[in-house]
């Protein structure tokens, strides 16, 4: 069997359709990860030792177990809670929760890098707790970690094909289905090319960001 250009050409349409779903899952999962990551990061600074350590081990557990297993686990476990999630939203939750643990570490490093004097100045000005976080500490902390956060967006994107195991028709599953009909050479090759192109383009973008924002 040899490479068939017209077959490969016909695949681009459906594959781009799958890619759209891939990108949607990536974007939604990332937003969830950014928000949940912040929650973890703030809880980790809690003076309550029990809460602090509990959060620490939850993060450690999620971080050191495979996303693939987590997705399948959610796929079976979520319905037992009585709420029905579609496969797509199960995937978004899986991606978001998994990456929130990485992102909380990024925030944490950023927060630790905010000079002690900034906290002391807040105390001296008697600022309320919420202003300390949202007006002083986080803006400084996040600015410095933007390139690192960008790297995790790319990483999350590259993990999104795993959603195929829970039947989300993202790009990889489309390729798999198409390949089942008329051969796997072209679908997977075109998909691979799509991933390389998107990843390389986005890492160029990240390098631009690194130029603009200081690296921690």
């Amino acid at each position: 069997m040899t490479w068939d250009w017209s077959y490969a050409g016909d695949l681009v349409g459906p594959l781009l359709g799958g890619l759209r779903l891939t990108i949607a899952a990536t974007a939604l999962g990332y937003v969830l990860a950014l928000a949940l990551g912040l929650v973890w990061a703030i809880l980790r600074r809690s003076p309550n030792v029990v809460l602090n350590q509990a959060v620490r081990w939850v993060i450690e557990f999620i971080r050191s177990t495979p996303l693939l297993v987590q997705l399948v686990f959610l796929f079976y476990a979520l319905p037992t809670t009585g709420i029905q999630f579609s496969a797509f939203w199960t995937g978004v939750i899986g991606l978001g929760v998994h990456y929130s643990t990485y992102i909380s570490e990024v925030y944490r490093a950023g927060i630790e890098n905010v000079p002690r004097g900034q906290w002391e100045a807040c105390t001296a000005l008697n600022l309320p707790r919420s202003r300390v976080w949202f007006a002083v500490v986080l803006p400084q902390a996040i600015r410095k970690v933007i390139p690192t956060l960008g790297n995790y967006l790319i990483a999350l994107f590259k993990d999104s094909p795993l959603l195929l195991v829970i039947t989300v028709p993202e790009v990889m599953r489309v390729a798999y289905t198409e390949g089942g009909k008329s051969g796997f050479l072209e679908p997977f090759t075109v998909t691979a090319a799509l991933f390389v192109i998107v990843s390389v383009l986005s890492s160029i973008l990240i390098r631009r960001l690194e130029g603009r924002y200081a690296i921690i």
Partner: peptide, 21 residues
């Protein structure tokens, strides 16, 4: 190249596509 390519995609390509050539 290899950082941009998810291991899953690469593995499927090795396993399903390459035998065809």
């Amino acid at each position: 190249f290899f950082r941009g390519l998810p291991a899953l995609v690469l593995m499927f390509w090795f396993f399903y596509s390459l035998p065809l050539v």
